[in-house]
Structures are given as structure tokens and as C-alpha cells.
Amino acid sequence: MPQHVRFDLPFNTPVSPHLEYARDRHLLWVRERGLVRSQAGFEEYQSWDLSQAAARTYPHASADDLVVLMNWFSLAFLFDDQFDAGRADRADRIAEVARELIATPLRPAGTAPRVVCPITLAWVEVWEYLSNGMSLTWQARFAASWGRFLVAHCEEVDLAARGMAATLGLDAYAGFRRRTVGIHHSIDAGERSRGFEVPAAAMAHPLMERMRDLAADTIGFMNDIHSFERERRRGDGHNLIAVLRRERDYSWQEASDEAYRMTTGCLDEYLGLEARVPQMCDELGLDADERARVGMGVEGVRHWINGNYEWALTTGRYAADKDGPVATAELAGRGSVDDLLTM
């Protein structure tokens, strides 16, 4: 089964010692904020174990910061599960809420949302905390990456609503997946989790830009492989294996094998570029402190590649053999039993 597919990653990453503390407070928060309303929805959400994902991808965050990062994780995943192309008005409502989520980091922190629903209210709260202490440069970078991610999701919903989700070719899908996976802003949040910022000159260097793109490709393709059985059951064509099968007339096994090859190819290219980071630092004339911050930035990318991989092997979000109310909702085209786009 694809969720059990293993990749040979040449590095390990730690798990936060604050996992249990943060998980308890996070689960209380999602209930109090109305992000999970039904018992079935709460049980499904617990099975995803996003708390483990946050503890693996941000292992050096303080206990309180880790709670906030878990809270932020919930917003992106729960928003993704609001998509229901079977309802004529759903795409418009998703776009309206997405615009509000995009606008929040561009306003003064704490500004009340203009579109009110559980997700927008929770995001205002999370962003006020997440942005605290970070420079305007970092905030603008995060906001741009976050915005691209949300716009891509709106495009995905629109394609599904128009029956065009299964029309993307491989190249178009790969570029699209790079945005929908949401890794760029997630790596940005790694800086917030440790209270540092990668020097702007290094962040803008083509080497770092390519490394971030390759990390996004690696993680996105890994997720496609691990979630394939679940998405196949739902009839979701937004998956690398499905695209390869359709475009190249592969069998499912051939498509899975090629997806694996593409994923390891992205990882190998990433590792090759990572080895050139010291040379980049020399080229830019970075001092010892700046080099240390670049090193932490690269470490943050590693945390995301490995941490997300370890989480994906066990999360209930990718399980293909679920039954019950949530599974029934998925078969009807929805990922969640709770509507979070209305009050």
C-alpha cells in the first residue's frame, strides 16, 4: 500500500520534547474555536495527528510556540478539507474565505476579519502570535508564500468544479503541486520557531530558491504517494500517480514506480545543491553569524523533508481503509463532516 512506501533519507531529525504538552492544549483549542464541531469530526481530526507533524518539523520550538504552530497546521489542513465541488456555491465561498486568509498578514496584526467564520477568526489569532518578533521582510516573505498556496487551492477547487481536475499534464501538475503543498511558507515558519532569520541575500540566491523548490517537490510527491489509496477511493485526480497513469498510459504499478523515481530524483538533486551551500556563503561574503543562520535555515528544510515523511507513514489522514461518517463524507466528495466556512 502506498502509505507504507519507504524512502531512504540520509538524515534524521529530532522530535520536540514538548509534543504531549502541546498536543493537549492544541486539541482543546480546536474544540474551543469551533474548528471541529462534531464528535465524528473530532475523532477524524485526532487520527491525523498533526501534532506529531508539527513536533517533527519544528523540533526546536518552545512549548508555547509549538502549540501555536500546531494551531496553524490545523487551519491549512481543515481549510483544504472544506472543498466540495458538488455544491454549486462552494467554489465562490472558498475563494471568499481564501482572500480573507491571504489579506490577514497584510493588515496590522490583530485586525478583525471582514469575512467571519471559524477559520478566519482563528487565523487572525494565530498570525498575531506567529508574526510577533519577526521583521517586516520575513512577514512579507511569509505572506507571499502563504498567498500563493491559498490561490493554488482556489484554482484546484475551480478546476474540480468545472470538471477539469483530470486535464493537467505532468509539467503543469508538477508546478501546480509545488504551490498546493505549501512548503515554502512552512519553511519560513521554521525561522519563527527558532527565533532567527536567514539573511536576505542568501534567501534570494538562486541556489536557496532551487533548494526550497526541490524540497517542496520532494515532499509534495512523497505525500502523493502516501495518500494515493485514499485519494483514489475519493476519485481525486490531483495526485502524481494518477497524472502519470493518465498521461503515459501506465498501469497503476508503473505509475507508482515512476512517481517514486521522480521523488528520489528531486531528493538527490536537493542533496547535491545542499553540499554547495558553503560555497554560496563564500560567494556572498557572509560572516560567521550569517553563516550560522543559513545553516539553521538548511536544517529547517531537512526537518520538513524528514519530519513530514515520518508523519506520513502513520497518519490516519492518508489511511485508505476507514469507515464511518467521515469516510462517507469523503465518498460524497468532502474530506470533513464539519462546515467551517460559515458561523
Rank of each mutant, 00 (worst) to 15 (best):
A292S: 10
F79R: 11
L313G: 06
A61T: 02
E32W: 07
L35G: 12
R210Y: 05
E247D: 13
Q279R: 15
D92R: 10
L159M: 11
R93W: 00
A329S: 15
Y21A: 02
A329Q: 06
G169S: 13
D188M: 05
E197M: 14
M1A: 13
I183G: 05
P325S: 15
C154F: 00
V337E: 04
V36E: 08
N223G: 10
A143Q: 01
I219S: 04
D24E: 14
G237S: 15
A329T: 03
D338C: 11
A103I: 00
L168Y: 09
H303Q: 08
L341D: 03
G110W: 05
R31G: 13
V181N: 14
L35P: 15
I119R: 04
W311L: 10
P2G: 02
F176Q: 05
N12I: 00
D287Y: 03
S186F: 11
R317C: 09
V337T: 10
H226M: 11
E258S: 02
L69T: 06
R194E: 08
S38P: 09
E156P: 02
H153Q: 08
D236H: 03
A319R: 14
M134T: 02
A201L: 08
D323C: 11
T104K: 00
L331S: 09
F11C: 04
A202N: 06
F176T: 07
H153M: 06
A55T: 04
G190K: 06
A91S: 13
G295P: 03
P325I: 12
E229T: 03
M1N: 05
V326Y: 08
H26T: 07
L340Q: 05
M296P: 00
A122T: 02
W123H: 03
L159V: 01
D84P: 01
G34E: 13
G235D: 07
P17R: 05
L106R: 13
A152S: 12
V124D: 04
D257Y: 01
G307K: 03
T167Y: 04
M343D: 10
A55S: 15
A327E: 15
I183S: 09
W146I: 00
T218Q: 04
